[in-house]
Every structure is written in C-alpha cells, then in structure tokens.
C-alpha cells in the first residue's frame, strides 16, 4: 500500500484539478479573473523537495505527459515544464534550508515560472489574446493567490504522505 500511495495521490490531485476547474472557476464568481489550480504540480514539487529529486522529475514527466494528453492535447509542454522546474527547484533547495515554509514559498515561485513559461509557449503556438500586463492582472496574480492558499492548506498533509512513502529506503 505504501508503494502505491504516491502514484494514487498524484492521480487524485490530477483529477481534483479538473473538478476544481469545473466547479469553481471563472464566471462562477462573476469576475473576469482566471484561477488556475496547480495542485498536481505542488505535489510534484513536494516530492522533489522532501522525497528525492529523481522521483520528482520522473513523476513530473509521467503526470505532465498525462496532463498534456488528457487535458490540453498539445503534447510535451507540461511534461517538459513539470520535470524541468522540479530540477530547478531541487537545485535551489540546496542553497536554502529545507523546511515547510521555504518549500511553500519556493513552490509559489515555481508556479509563477510555470504560468509565465506556459504563457510564452502558447504565445509561440498561437495568439494568446492578451498582452503580458493583461496576463499578469487577469491570470497570474489570481492563480498565485489561489495556489499559495492551496500550498498552505496542503503542505503538511503532502509532507506526511511523502515521508510515509520513505523514498530514502529505496
């Protein structure tokens, strides 16, 4: 069971993102702001920080690719970015002391990077319909607020799951 708990919870966050988007997003609150949930990405970053970098990158690749296939239908973007940012975060974690609050802050920074890179990638593929200032106001800021709240709520449960799975033993 302890072997399966990480993939299962990653898959749960994968599904939860879509349900969240379905139920709570956008016009539901009668505003033009866009809140993008990144629970799965937060989980992958926490695996990288509190588990092992190798597994973080592997999970990033697998679930990023699943995300591409099932949701966006543009293959490669999220698979590459999840894995790449997991690597970047693991490098940054070596410079700072590893505790939950630093991890939460760093995750938020990584989410900001992810959003900006996805925006640029979409800009290359097709017209995104908004310039960077609009993007920052409509999308980036609300997304960061939402995900910072999500990190604060999910940090301790996620850390417990990952520590139970005991990556060092493998």
């Amino acid at each position: 069971m302890s072997r399966l708990i990480i993939p299962l919870s990653a898959f749960f966050f994968f599904l939860a993102e879509s349900t969240f988007a379905d139920l709570f997003a956008g016009e539901h609150f009668h505003s033009s702001r866009i809140f993008v949930p990144h629970f799965l990405f937060i989980f992958i970053l926490f695996i990288t920080i509190f588990g092992s970098t190798k597994y973080g990158i592997i999970y990033g690749l697998i679930f990023g690719f699943l995300f591409d296939v099932v949701y966006t239908e543009i293959l490669g973007v999220y698979a590459f970015l999840f894995a790449f940012l997991a690597l970047v975060v693991s490098k940054l974690m070596k410079l700072v002391h590893s505790n939950v609050f630093v991890a939460a802050l760093l995750s938020t920074v990584a989410i900001a990077l992810l959003e900006i890179l996805v925006y640029e990638a979409n800009g290359l593929i097709r017209d995104t319909g908004m310039n960077f200032t609009q993007f920052a106001a409509i999308r980036l800021l609300p997304t960061l607020i939402l995900n910072f709240a999500a990190v604060i709520i999910l940090a301790f449960p996620m850390k417990r799951i990952i520590e139970k799975a005991n990556f060092d033993a493998e």
């Binding site: 599904l15 879509s18 988007a21 997003a25 949930p37 949701y71 966006t72």
Partner: peptide, 8 residues
C-alpha cells in the same frame, strides 16, 4: 472533466 489550464 474540464481542462484546468484555462488556455485551451
């Protein structure tokens, strides 16, 4: 399901 990344 709905695409959580709201670009597409």
């Amino acid at each position: 399901a709905r695409n959580p990344d709201m670009w597409h």
